[in-house]
Structures are given as C-alpha cells and as structure tokens.
Amino acid sequence: MDRIIKVIFSTGILTLFYFIWTGTTDLYNILIIAFIALVISIIYNRSLFKPMLSPKKWIYSIWYVIFLFIEIIKANFDVARRVVSPKIPINPGIVTVKTKLKSAMGRMILANSITLTPGTLTVDIDEDILYIHWIDVTNIDEKTATEKIVANFEKYLEVIFG
C-alpha cells in the first residue's frame, strides 16, 4: 500500500514536471505522458518522492526557499568582496558540524544549502557529521561551528522533513 501511494505520487510529480516544461493543454499529450511517468515510477523503485500532506510543511518550505534565496544573495556579495579585493582576505579550514536531521533527503538539502551560503562548502558527510570547508574560520570548536552554520537551516528543515 505504501508502495502504491509512492508510485502514484511520483507519477504525479513527473507529470507536473512535464507540464511545467511544455505548458501544453492537449489532453492526449498529458495522458500519454502520465502513462510514461507511471512506467518510469514503477521501474525505478528507489524514487524519493514522498507525499507531503500537512500544510504546515508547505508553508515552512516556502519560507525556507525565500530564506535560502536571501542567504544565497548574501553569499554572493561576500564572494564578490573577497574576489575583487587585491589581497584576497581568507582564513580557510575544514571544520566538523553535527546535524540533528534523520532523513536522507533532509540531509541532502542541508548539505546543498550549506554549499550555497556564505563561505561554506560541504566536503564530506558521515552519518550525522558534516565536514565543511569554511573560508573564514572563526572557531574550530564543533559546537560553535554548528551554531553558526547549520542551526539556521535546521529550524526549517526539522519541520519539513521531520
């Protein structure tokens, strides 16, 4: 039963993706594509598309995207400042942080967000420990780094993927 719900949801997502891509209004087109999406979802049984039903998660997702976009813009001004200045001001190093997230999807989104935000780049991941290249290390202590790097994201991601 669980599997059937997953397949149907995956089919829906893939059809939606096709619909956004082509913007078609032809019914035959959508039916054919829905069939193909169904076949793909059945064949590929490791798909991670899961139904997300509670409206709270949706609201948090939208907030998260906005928050992330602001962070990315900040990150870019940070990078631009460093790149343009004649004597490149960096103080790099690799530090560890701990995450509380359990789901694989949540961890991936967290790692991607860390990569896209100011001065940090996920180098490796090992269960709940992330190894992060930090362009301007202020403190190599794990607790402080966690507080500075991941705490902001986890607030949202814990609700979305919790």
Partner: peptide
C-alpha cells in the same frame, strides 16, 4: 581564476555561478 587553492576556487565558483 584568482583564488589560491582548489577548495576556495570551488567556493567562489559554485556560489557565484549558481546565483548568476
């Protein structure tokens, strides 16, 4: 082009090209 080592280059490369 300017950053001193691979990881710093990657930082600049990934962030700026994604937003760009």
């Amino acid at each position: 082009f300017r950053m001193p080592d691979l990881y710093n280059r990657m930082q600049a490369g990934t962030k700026a090209t994604t937003l760009g």
